[in-house]
Amino acid sequence: MDVLLNLTINGIATGSLIFLLAAGLTLIFGLMHVLNFAHGALFAWGAYFGVWIYTQTGSFVVGIIGAIVIGALLGWLLERWIIQPVYTNTMSQIQVTMGLLLVMNECIKVFFGPNQVSVQLPSYLDESWLIGGVILIKYRLFVIAVGILVFLALQYMLKRTRLGLIVRAGVMNKEMVQALGVNIKKVFLYVFILGCGMAALGGMLFAPYSGVIHAEIGMDYGILAFIVVVIGGMGSMVGSALAALLVGVLGAFMTFYVPSVALAVNMLLMFGVLMFRPAGLLGRG
C-alpha cells in the first residue's frame, strides 16, 4: 500500500513536470499548427541555465526566475527568426525545428561541457515527512503544487481574459479571427513565449528532482511531451493535463515493476491512441 501511494505521488510529480512542457506544445500546435520539435530543447536550456544561475547566486527562487526569463527570451528569438519564416510550409517547419533541437542540444554541450551536472536542493525544500509509513518528500509536493498552480493560471487565462478568448477562437478558426481584425501573429508570438517559458520552468524544476541533468534530457522529455500532447488531444489543455498525469503515473509504476519496458509502454500508448482516436482523448475532430 505504501509503495503504491509513493509511486502515485512520484508519478503525479513527474506528470506535473511533463505537463509544464506539454502545455506550451499543445497551445502552440492548437493555435498555429506548428509542431515545435525544438520544444524539448527549451526544457534542457531552462534546466542548465536555471541551475547555473542558482549555483552562482545561491538562491533557488532566482534560479527559477532566471530559467523562465531565459526560456521566454529564447522563445521570442526563435519565433521571430526561425519559426515565422516557415509558418506556411509544414515540411520546412518539421525540418527546421528538428535542426534547432540538434543545435540547441549541442550548444549546451559547448557551454556546460558534455558531462552530467549534479544539482543539490536548497535545504528548505530538502526535507521529508513520514506519515504512517508513507514518505512525503517536500520537493515532490512542491513540484505538484507548481503544476497545479500553472494549470489553474492557464485555465484562468484561457477562460477569463481577452487573450485567452482570442487564443480559444484562434484554435477553432484562425482565419475568422484574423478577418475580425485581430493580429493573430502577435497573439501567437505571446503564446509561443509563454510556452517556452513554461518549458524552461519545467526543466529547472526537473533538475533537482532528478539530481543530475545531461544534454539529452531535451530529446527524452521532448518525446514524452509529444506523447502527452497526442494522447490528450492537440490544442486541449485539460486533455494534456490528464494525459500528463496518466503518462507520469504509468511511467512511475512501470519503472518500478517492469523497468525494461517503461519507455515502450508510453510509445505503445501513443500508438494506440493515434490508431484509434487520432484526435486524442479530448481533442476535436
Binding site: 499548427h33 518525446i223 510509445m267 500508438f271
Partner: peptide, 28 residues
Amino acid sequence: VMTLRLKSHFYAMLTLAIAGLFLVLAEK
C-alpha cells in the same frame, strides 16, 4: 500500413518513436 494514414506531423513523430523502440529493443 499503420502510420502513413496520419498527417505529416504525426507521421514524423510516430516514426521517431518507433525508431526509439528499436533502439531500446537493441539495448535490452
